[in-house]
């Protein structure tokens, strides 16, 4: 029909949105930059080393893990996120072998063992963090004050031992002890807003997660703002509970996920032995994700919605 043209035949649609996995992943990395910068500013150059070691170990582990599985490694950015997120939820005092071990565990056990990108049940960064916390609990709880680097307790630690609340303003800005990237709600909010504006993450998850914690704490007579801003809730709500792979597919499912995780945080903080509960709340809800997906299927056009107890599968 057209001289010398080799026409391509491929199935419709012939038009595709420009979005790609790589673009999404690197945008998430970009969105984490305010929190990263804030962490390095507050906790010094050692924090930067922790971050670099963690990211690099994640990449190397993924390369080796994919090699072992016979899969081709692509620089899709997902390992960068895992490494970065793990570093951001480590105390700023950890020795450098810890991010290396944690990251490798996160990628090899948390991701590759399940079959690689898209297959893992649990958030890899949190798997790595949980592993480190269980294996070296004392190293994972050595906190320092920001800028000065003096040993101190986290706001939640102080609260748990009856020391009262920390100033809301300090919590919002991040001028408190805590993990490298979790202290500044403001910095996290900057990146999170970007992702929500681009519709890369669903606003329902952070809203339902943080909202549930605030509401329940209010009902329990606690300071809701303190509990919403302290600890890793913001980082977890915007960057971990919104991880595509390990959270529900539908909007309704994401609300259930957020409410469930919020409930778990409150239970752990109020009635558990630990001052903080974000890691485990998300990991536990990750396990429920397939079940939530099953019960929140959208209504198919031209069918009548059946109540969840009437559904077979």
């Amino acid at each position: 029909m057209i001289p010398n043209a080799k026409l391509l035949v491929s199935p419709s649609p012939h038009l595709k949105d420009r979005v790609s996995v790589r673009r999404i992943m690197f945008t998430v990395v970009l969105a984490l930059m305010p929190a990263t910068a804030c962490g390095v500013y507050l906790f010094g150059l050692h924090a930067l080393w922790v971050i670099l070691v963690s990211v690099l170990s994640a990449l190397v582990s993924e390369f080796l893990g994919y090699r072992a599985m016979g899969k081709r490694f692509t620089m899709d950015g997902s390992a960068v996120i895992t490494g970065l997120l793990l570093a951001l939820c480590l105390p700023p005092t950890v020795p450098l072998w810890m991010p290396a071990v944690g990251s490798s565990f996160a990628i090899l056990v948390g991701k590759c063992a399940f079959g690689g990108l898209g297959q893992n049940l649990f958030n890899p960064a949190l798997v790595g963090r949980a592993f480190l916390t269980l294996s070296w609990p004392s190293l994972m709880t050595r906190w320092v004050s920001p800028l000065e680097g003096v040993s101190t307790a986290t706001p939640l630690g102080t609260w748990k031992s009856g020391g009262g609340y920390t100033s809301t303003w300090d919590l919002f800005l991040g001028n408190v002890a805590g993990c490298i990237g979790e202290t500044s709600a403001l910095a996290i909010l900057l990146g999170g807003t970007l992702l929500i504006a681009l519709r890369y993450i669903d606003w329902r998850t952070p809203l339902s997660y943080i909202g549930t914690v605030g509401l329940l704490m209010l009902l329990l007579g606690e300071d809701p703002l303190f509990h919403m801003l302290a600890g890793g809730l913001f980082l977890g709500a915007f960057f971990m509970a919104t991880d595509y792979v390990t959270t529900p597919l539908t909007g309704r499912g994401r609300v259930i996920f957020g409410v469930g995780a919020g409930l778990l945080v409150v239970v752990i903080r109020m009635y558990g032995g630990m001052p903080e509960g974000v890691t485990y709340s998300i990991l536990i809800m990750n396990a429920f994700t397939p079940l939530i997906d099953r019960y929140t299927r959208p209504r198919v056009y031209g069918t009548v919605r059946r109540k969840w107890w009437e559904r077979k599968k």
């Binding site: 999404i24 990108l117 959208p298």
Partner: peptide, 18 residues
């Protein structure tokens, strides 16, 4: 590439399929 379960297709499907 592998599906990353972003849920965009579920949101976009006018028939309510997954």
């Amino acid at each position: 590439g592998p599906c990353i379960r972003c849920g965009r297709c579920v949101e976009a499907c006018p028939m309510g399929l997954m």
